[in-house]
């Protein structure tokens, strides 16, 4: 299946990626090749087949509702690009 550069740009926006114009053409070609290949799946009739989202059949896993210690707040923010007093600093969101 062919995928247009406009579609690639749309998906890039959804994925929060900035793709420059030169890369758009290359990605459209590469994704088109891969999508053409995966369409071999359409040769299979899968009507009525349950999808598998997990290899092992596990249902809900619960634990006792008991509080346990969590990560120290300063340790949790220590890897942040910008942090202050245990808070993450981000660019201004609302103008």
């Amino acid at each position: 299946m062919k995928i247009s550069t406009q579609e690639v740009a749309h998906v890039a926006r959804l994925a929060r990626l900035t793709i420059d114009d030169a890369q758009l053409d290359l990605l459209a070609a590469q994704l088109g090749d891969i999508l053409t290949y995966v369409e071999t799946l359409n040769r299979l009739d899968t009507s009525g087949v349950e999808p598998t989202s997990h290899a092992v059949d596990i249902c809900n896993v619960f634990r006792a509702d008991e509080p346990v210690a969590s990560l120290d707040r300063n340790a949790a923010t220590a890897n942040a690009p910008e942090a202050l007093d245990g808070n993450f600093i981000v660019p201004k969101v609302i103008e």
Binding site: L41, T46, E50, T52
Partner: peptide, 8 residues
């Protein structure tokens, strides 16, 4: 579709 093929 891929998840159904995974079942197969």
């Amino acid at each position: 579709k891929a998840s159904q093929v995974r079942t197969l």
